[in-house]
Nucleic acid binder design. Structure first.
Lengths: 389, 389
DNA sequence: GAGGCGAATGTGAGCGTTCACATTTTTTGT
DNA sequence: ACAAAAAATGTGAACGCTCACATTCGCCTC
């Protein structure tokens, strides 16, 4: 800091004032400024050895020195406290913008013991659903003045999860959104979070853990029932990968719906959510000569796309010879060939609810309800029709 | 902290030792422990009024008190310094795991003036490309021991961008990845970053700014040339939205390639990258009776999907009557109807390069080269063929 | 066993902020 | 005009950590 950077102008400005009070103020102002300058010099001497930032950012002290008030007053202005005289506030704000001061949130966090950061772990974020949830979480957090740290888990292993949560906690996040499989890991997660509130996305957690779930079974039931209502009796299924709760729930719902309609569940193949795996699963279904079916229920839209492609390649017409239903309702699904009948759910809603519950937990407000359920709906397009035989 | 939490066991353990040294050590150990306990009590008294965390996390001091060394020694152990005796290290590690100590990164950041956080701003993250880049950035950063803060910009306005970068800088990020339009905003960005290194994704920045770009023009050239080589003379174009540099570059490359082949660029409609807009653009192209074309070049795969659907709805066969080429090569594109000929680029590569350059800037290493260019390639599938007339 | 050396450990201060309280200044009531 | 109340501003310590330097310890050499 150089002597010239002090706001000497403000000191001498208005020297025509009259009252003794103002005269006194004016008399001391340069001395105060100089004192602060001196202090700044001494301070900067002791930190000479520190790794120098290319441009050291202005601090509360710098601003205070600049306009001749204490750092506390500047802090008050920065935090919008009403306990500052308007005249002072204006002077401080001017100095803040002149020095381009921004608060150091790491320091604030240290002092206040709370942060405006939330963390989120997720998987498969290249997929529409998860990425949509992430965006929504980020956006909701931002609206509440918080920033998002995100970690993608590649294989969702315990060690990867531990590492991610640990580093979030080391960063002192205010809360966590756990958008990976939580079933059977709640104790692990609770331990890792060390008191930091968290919400999970997806079922399989004890009732006291705040969680947002999609009523998967309801969605699949709607879709399957739709096929049954159209007259389909033999319905095949392409499932999601093992290890995902959603896979299991959806598949179970399919079986149950078939059974309760007095029908035998048809053949089932497994994919990994990708279009490619859907293609392969469909091929396997078609190739196993023993199986006869007039419709396929697919556990997500990506795999449904692959299945559609497989059917087309095999010369089968959809929905003329075979009906297909998906799950998720991607923005693209209505442009599939043919436009896909599918189960719609609202990913943005899920993210928003997660954040809402998380903040309730962070603010220690009543945690009820701890479970938000989304009921998906069916979107009927052109990939389903009455069976032709 | 209670007296019982002190590791008294360790003090009395092994009282059968003989040397005077050890005897002396043993003699003082309880006193030292008690002294630390006393200090801890005094300290905790002064901080009684602080907002109490439900579970206050252990600090260096707690660990130090627990095993009777100074906080500095614990710090050394935590940071893997070799200047610690093995015996001490073992004792400290034990206390760390017993107290479940984790360093407070906010405090470390404050003390060291550097953080292990990097920030990233992006748009359209629900799309495959951007989300893939984000994942890749996160993953590369994680490999280098850093965490990612992410902010999605909805409309990429200057004010939104400013807010995002500002809050990142307030969080003291070590570096920034700017994956939004930077052209014409570099001065703004530079000012906002206040000395924090950043890299941009996408062209239109001065040569001294580290940046990762895709050679859009090359990609479009490949695709257009492919159509021309097949014998197409009238090629329509579905462009990305105005305001995106990639839109402009791709479109320019199409015009140029056509011209340099001695052909007149065909009609052009504009979309917003979404499948829906691609559908509508294709409909507009087909409806404007004046235009004749045998192929459509589409600026991204999502819009290409919409276009394919539009063509099918209009009863046009692809590629029999009309060829279609896309751009991006989504994992799904090979399952479109028909599988889409498209331009492939490697999003993960882009993220990885961004982070690599960013860390070079953070570590003040030689910044050469400041520009990494990716040359996309053409993937020929079944949506293109020689024109039928 | 004194001297010297390197390894191990400890000390003090400071990072930029906030909190609780202290002090000063201004306003109000009589 | 004066005390009392209220508003405005300032002070000191703490948050948890790291850095530079100081101190202590154990060991080797002569």
């Amino acid at each position: 800091m150089s002597l010239m950077e002090l706001n000497w102008g403000a000191v001498w400005k208005g020297h025509k004032t009259r009252t003794t009070q103002q005269r006194k103020e004016q008399l001391w102002a340069p001395t105060i400024l100089f004192w602060r300058y001196f202090k700044a010099c001494v301070a900067s001497r002791t930190m000479k050895h520190r790794p120098q930032h290319s441009v050291r950012n202005a601090t509360l002290d710098d601003v205070a020195a600049r306009c001749g008030v204490s750092y506390q007053t500047v802090s008050r202005v920065a935090n919008g406290s009403p306990l500052v005289a308007d005249k002072t506030r204006a002077r401080v704000l001017e100095a803040i913008s002149e020095l381009n001061y921004r608060p150091n949130l790491a320091a604030r966090r240290l002092a206040t013991q709370r942060s405006n950061l939330i963390g989120m772990v997720g998987t498969k974020v290249t997929y529409y659903g998860p990425s949509q949830v992430m965006i929504s979480v980020e956006e909701s957090a931002k609206r509440r003045g918080h920033n998002l740290m995100f970690a993608a888990l590649e294989r969702s292993s315990d060690s990867e999860l531990s590492a991610a949560i640990d580093s979030f906690c080391e960063h002192q996040v205010a809360g966590l959104v756990i958008a990976v499989r939580a079933k059977g890991r709640i104790d692990l997660i609770r331990k890792l979070c060390r008191g930091v509130p968290f919400v999970t996305l997806g079922a399989g957690v004890p009732p006291d853990v705040p969680t947002v779930v999609v009523d998967e079974k309801h969605g699949v039931r709607l879709a399957t029932q739709h096929l049954i209502d159209l007259g389909h009796k033999q319905i095949a299924y392409i499932a999601g990968p093992r290890g995902w709760l959603a896979s299991r729930d959806r598949r179970q719902a399919w079986t149950q719906t078939m059974r309760s309609a007095g029908l035998e569940p048809g053949p089932c193949e497994e994919g990994d959510w990708s279009a490619e795996s859907g293609y392969e699963a469909a091929i396997r279904l078609l190739d196993s000569s023993s199986s006869r079916f007039t419709a396929i229920m697919v556990a997500n839209d990506h795999m449904a796309l692959g299945a559609l492609r497989a059917l087309h390649a095999k010369g089968l017409h959809v929905p003329g010879q075979l009906s297909v239903v998906g799950f998720d309702d991607l923005p693209e699904s209505q442009f599939f060939q043919p436009p896909l009948t599918t189960v719609h759910h609202d990913f943005a809603w899920q993210g928003e609810r997660c954040v809402e519950m998380l903040f309730r937990a962070i603010n220690r407000e009543a945690a009820e309800p701890t479970r938000q359920v989304q009921r998906p709906g069916l979107v009927i397009r052109e990939s389903t029709a009455t069976p032709s035989f």
